[in-house]
Nucleic acid binder design. Structure first.
Ligand SMILES: [Mn+2]
Ligand SMILES: [Mn+2]
Ligand SMILES: [Zn+2]
Ligand SMILES: [Zn+2]
Lengths: 137, 137
DNA sequence: AACACAAACGCAACATGGTTGCGTAAAAAA
DNA sequence: TTTTTTACGCAACCATGTTGCGTTTGTGTT
C-alpha cells in the first residue's frame, strides 16, 4: 500500500487534490465505490465528469477494477498485487450485500474450474455471491 | 413447452397479439432478449413501454428470468420447469458470448458450493462464463 | 523564474436505457 | 350488451454515463 503521491507519480498521473483523495478513499476501504458514492465522500470536486474520467484513468493503469453492482451501476474496487501496471488479472469472487448494497472482493475464494462440454469456448469465469455482509449479518 | 395461448390463460394474462408473439419469440430460441432486440423482431407493437411492461409481467409470473448481459442491459430468457408459478428457482450458470453479445443459460453446469469463512452470509450464487458461443467459436 | 506543453478540470449539452402518468382501447367477466 | 379490468400508446420524465470544448493547472524544460 503505497502513498497516494507515489502512486500518481509512478503511473505518470498528474497530482491533483481530487486524485489524491480518490486514491486514499479506495485505500481506506475493503469495499467499493460508485461515482455517486465518491461524489458524496470527496469534497475537492463536485463534477461527475471529473470523477468518471479519473476512474477511467485509474482503471486503465490497473489501480482499480470494476466489480459487480446490485443495481448494475459502474462500481470500482482497488486492484490487488496480481495486476501488473499494464494488465488486470483477477481471479477472485465478489460478494454483493443485499442489505447495504455494497460489493466486496473475496480474495480467499477460488474460482471454480469449469469444463463446458456443449461447445462453448470459455475465456473467463465470474463468480458472484449474494447475501448479507459481516456488518449487515 | 405449452402453446402461447394456454400460457396466457393459465397465468391470467390477457391475450394480445404482442404477448402471443413475445411468448413464441422466447420459446423459439435457446438464448435471450433485450427490449431492443424484441422491438426489432416483433411487429405487433413499436412502443418500448409496452415491451417493458410485458416483460415485467412475464417475469412476475415466472415465465422469464433476467440473465446477465455483456453491457449491463436488462435481458431475459425463458424460465425452466424448476420455477413454479409463484417463485423463481434457478440453479444454472450463464454464458455471455463476447462476439455476438448473446447470453445463454447453461443448464448442464452446476453451481459450485461455496462456504465462505469470513463472515459473509451467502444466499445466492451466480456463475457467469464468458467467451465464444458455439455459433461464434 | 519564465515558458511551453500536455494533462486534468468544469461546464453544458447530449446519449441511452428504462420508468411513470394518464387517457384510450380492447379483452374478459358479468 | 354492459361493466370491469387489463393492456396499450403517447408524452414526459429520470438516472447514469459520455462527449466536446474552452480554461486551468501541473510538470518538465529552458
Ligand atoms: Mn475484485
Ligand atoms: Mn438462466
Ligand atoms: Zn452489507
Ligand atoms: Zn456468440
Amino acid at each position: 500500500m503505497n502513498k497516494a503521491e507515489e502512486i500518481l507519480a509512478k503511473y505518470k498521473l498528474k497530482k491533483t487534490n481530487f486524485r489524491l483523495e480518490l486514491i486514499k478513499l479506495f485505500q481506506s476501504s475493503k469495499s467499493s465505490f460508485t461515482a455517486d458514492e465518491i461524489n458524496d465522500k470527496i469534497k475537492s470536486t463536485n463534477d461527475k465528469v471529473t470523477i468518471y474520467r479519473a476512474l477511467s484513468a485509474f482503471e486503465k493503469k490497473c489501480l482499480i477494477h470494476r466489480v459487480p453492482d446490485k443495481s448494475n451501476l459502474i462500481r470500482y474496487a482497488l486492484c490487488q498485487k496480481e495486476c501488473s501496471k499494464i494488465h488486470h488479472k483477477h481471479n477472485h469472487a465478489h460478494f454483493i450485500c443485499n442489505v447495504c448494497a455494497q460489493t466486496f472482493c473475496l480474495d480467499n475464494i477460488k474460482l471454480p474450474q469449469i469444463n463446458d462440454t456443449s461447445g462453448f469456448k470459455i475465456n473467463k469465469t465470474k463468480l458472484t455471491l449474494e447475501g448479507a455482509c459481516p456488518s449487515c449479518y
